[in-house]
Structure formats: C-alpha cells, structure tokens
Design a protein around this nucleic acid. Structure first.
Length: 453
DNA sequence: TACATTTAGGGGACCACAATGCGAT
DNA sequence: AGATCGCATTGTGGTCCCCTAAATG
C-alpha cells in the first residue's frame, strides 16, 4: 500500500525531496520544483518502495524494488541469501528533468513492477513540460535546466557509474572512491550514508570512551522522533517513560537524595523548556506550570548553551557549582564528558508532556538533585541498569551505533514540516520580504523573474 | 595599551493566510 | 461515539533592523 503525494494528496507519491521533507508524485514534483531557481536545486530521489517514507538509495535487481538504506539493510544485511542480490545505486537528481532524463538516471524507472497501478508512471511519459519548458523547432520538449544550466544528476563516482555491487557490505563512500570528473561539485546529497550492520558488522566498534568523546551537543537532533530509533524501543505510552524508574532509569541516573540542595533553587515560573538532551536522545518537554525542571548536561560546550537558554529562569545558578560546594568551577568544566541529570522540584506534582503525550507524574518519580554533586560523583553516564530496565547494553550499543550513523549523515538544513505551506509561501507576494494581502501592491513576486514596482 | 569608531555577521521580528488543532455542539 | 462546525493557533520565506563581536584607526 503506497502513500499519497504530500502535495496533491491524490496521486501516489514516488519521489522524495529531502529539502521539502515531502513525498511527491511525479507531477507535483515537477510543479513544485519548477517554481523557482532555488526549488529546482532540491535534491530528490525515488521513494523507498518498502517503507514509503524514506528516499531510496539502492535498487535490488533480483527483487526489482527500490530501497532506502534501512530497508536495504533489513532485506540484505541480515539475510545471507539476499545479501548476494545485485543492487544498483539510485542517483538523486535536481532540476526538472524530463521523462527521458529520468529514465536515463533510473534505467528502471519505467519498469516498476509493484507500482503498476499508479498513474504516476504514465505521468512520467506524459508529463507535460509546463512553464519552464521550451519547444524546439521540431516540436520537441527540451530538457528543463536548473540555475546552473544543467539537470543535475548526483552520482556516487565510480560505484555509481558501474552502478552495481554485491553482498551486504556497505556502499563505498564517495571519499573512498576516485574522483569523478563528471561529478558536479557542490551538488547536494552526493555523500550517501555508509551502511552499517549493527553488531558484528559494525565498522566502528562501540567504545565508551570514544562514545562520549564524539558527543557534541551542538550536533544533537532535537527531535523526540529519535526515541525509537535511538533506543530501539518503541515508546508506546508516555507512562512507560516514567515507570520503572522512568527518566531516571532511562538516563541511568542514580539516587540523588544526597544531592546539592542548591539545585532546588532553580525555579521557573511559566516557561517552556524546549530541549532536554541525553546522549543520543533528545526530549522535547513542556513544563506546564514551571514546577519542575529537568536538565541534562553533557559537555561544557553545551553547558554554556544551556545556561544561556534558560538563564532567565534561574537555572544557571542551579547548575553552576555553588561556592559552598566542593565542586569547583574548574572541576565542573573539566568534566566535559559526564552528563548530568539535574532535576528540580518545587512542588510534588506537575504535568509533563512529551511531544504531545501528557504525563501525570508524581514527586516520587524524580529525586531532587544537584548538578555539582553529580560532578563530584563522577559517575559515568551509563550507570548500571536496573535488571528490569528495557534498555539492555545490547540495545544501548545499537542505539549508539544508530546515533553515530545518523550523526554522520545529519544535515542541518531547515526542515520543512508542511510542504504545502512552503509551496504557498514560495509563491506569495511580498513587500520588503513581508507577506502582503492578496490584491495589495507588492514589490516582489516570487513567480516573476524580475521585481515589479 | 586603551579607547572610539567602523564593519561584518547573526538572529529575531514582521507580514498574510492556508493548514492544522481542538473544543463545542 | 462519531461527525461537523467554528475559532484559535501554527508555519512558511524574504527582508529589515538591532545587537554583538571583530577589525581598524
């Protein structure tokens, strides 16, 4: 069962645009990405035919199916029989390629056995070249070009040229391959993620010391969507998070009954603290009434950010080592790799919501703690797990590997949550950058090449 | 070296309105 | 319990403006 186009909501989606974070049918892909020069530069790829949510990076010749990295690994990385399947790299593209262009990029593009019912394939052949196309003297549609004057096809050097490899091993990274003179420099999405086989095939063995060295809060993804991905456990119910030790067990904290009371001075009034981090997971927490604050501090760099972010609510004083405490500022700052869980509690009851899931929690769920005390303790962040903890070391290792993998492929492009809104904004007229009412005089029309005054 | 001025860069605010969320019916 | 309605909120991009840090005199 496929998914419908994010834009028209009617046609079956076939391509994925990372920039728009949208799955589009071919027709809408063309319409959306022909709007302006910038949108033409969006790198798109086929949609994974298995999960229908991620861009496909390989095509299995045996199964005749396009797969994203994850599905590829699931299908080929774990099965010895399937691991020998011939697979072909799927190149991404930008610009507004014609049907012939697309078929040249994806030789199999007109041969989707599992999508025969879709009308998009027909569109591929019938796709009209609209406003951006020209017709030559022979009445043939010419290929749309992007700002640089050419349809960009991003390949992956030699492996992409030959296009085929076998086995379950990782796709060779671009950097390990000879430079391809044809490769357009600076084109988007040229470095596809390295494939990992968690466990024995992981090219970088999990190493605790290395782990914390690699953590950099600056690169943390602030999305709770990572929960399942990172921990390998589905958070079916927010209560699960708070049961069995709740966040404490998740974070591997220990009893903080003897914690520095200075932390208790950190009180927020009405506030939303947006981000709480723990290693590979990040929480989006909303504190309903400022009764409780949770902070996780990983490294000095992030500590600074944390202070700045919530200084207005007084947490700075709480997480900074108090003068009365034996932990000096130096020791705090030198303890870069040790996360701190700082929980403050003003009242016994508060509402936490985790990404929309409201959680009723009681004071017993958390213990007051002191950041500086944590520092003194010097406990590693991954404290021994409770026996009943769902997060075994194996799961954790998997989570760490997933985190590392994601870290390598992470991009900091602006995420567009609603492609339809973006499309609307892209064509909306403005005055000095500001949207103006329809019908009002404007000085900038995104749809026109030149400004109108 | 200390201070004042200039320059460069970053980030937030602003705008309209369709999409979305959510409570009430 | 599900459907419908109506109101409030959200999110989108280009430009301007303010603030801070760095550079210069």
């Amino acid at each position: 069962m496929g998914y419908v186009c994010d834009f028209c909501g009617e046609q079956r989606s076939m391509v994925y645009c990372r920039s728009d974070a949208a799955s589009l049918c071919l027709s809408c892909d063309r319409n959306v990405h022909s709007a302006n020069a910038l949108s033409k530069r969006h790198s798109r790829n086929l949609l994974c035919e298995r999960c229908n949510s991620q861009p496909a990076i390989v095509r299995c010749a045996e199964e005749r199916i396009s797969l994203c990295q994850n599905c590829d690994w699931i299908g080929h990385g774990t099965s010895t029989s399937a691991s020998t399947h011939r697979r072909q790299t799927i190149n991404c593209y930008s610009g507004c390629p014609s049907a012939s262009e697309l078929s040249s990029i994806w030789s199999f593009v007109l041969d989707f056995p599992s999508r025969g019912e879709s009308t998009c394939e027909q569109e591929l052949g019938l796709m009209s070249i609209a406003e951006n196309s020209t017709t030559n003297s022979r009445g043939e549609n010419t290929i749309d070009q992007n700002a640089s004057g050419a349809v960009e096809v991003n390949d992956r050097h030699e492996i992409a040229k030959s296009g085929v490899w076998h086995g379950s091993s990782s796709i060779p990274e671009s950097s390990s391959l000879p430079n391809n003179p044809d490769q357009p420099t600076g084109s988007a999405n040229t470095s596809l993620p390295k494939l990992y086989c968690p466990g024995t095939k992981c090219p970088v063995p999990y190493d605790d010391a290395n782990l914390y060295e690699e953590f950099n809060m600056d690169e943390m993804d602030l999305s709770l969507e990572n929960y399942e991905e990172l921990f390998g456990v589905t958070l079916n119910n927010s209560e699960e998070l708070l049961e069995n030790g709740g966040i404490d067990s998740l974070f591997g904290t220990k009893d903080m009954s003897g914690a520095d009371s200075n932390c208790r001075g950190a009180v927020a009034s009405e506030l939303d603290i947006n981000a709480y981090f723990w290693d590979t997971v990040s929480f989006l927490c909303q504190i309903s009434n400022g009764k409780r604050m949770i902070g996780v501090i990983l490294k000095q760099e992030w500590l600074v950010d944390f202070e700045v972010t919530v200084s207005s609510v007084g947490l700075v004083n709480a997480i900074q080592p108090a003068s009365s405490n034996a932990a000096s500022a130096d020791s705090m700052m030198s303890n870069k790799t040790e996360p701190i869980l700082c929980l403050t509690e003003k009242q016994g009851h508060s509402n936490l919501s985790f990404s929309g899931l409201n959680v009723e929690s009681t004071a017993a769920d958390y213990q007051d703690c002191g950041a500086s005390s944590m520092l003194l303790m010097g406990e590693p962040p991954w404290c021994p797990q409770c026996p009943e903890s769902p997060f075994s070391s194996a799961n954790r290792s998997d989570a760490v590997m997933r985190y590392k993998e994601k870290k390598k492929t992470r991009k900091f492009e602006k995420k567009v949550r609603y492609a339809s809104r973006k499309a609307r904004a892209d064509v909306r007229r403005r005055v000095k950058g500001r949207f103006v009412k329809a019908g009002d005089a404007y000085d900038y029309d995104p749809l026109s090449q030149t400004r109108s005054f």
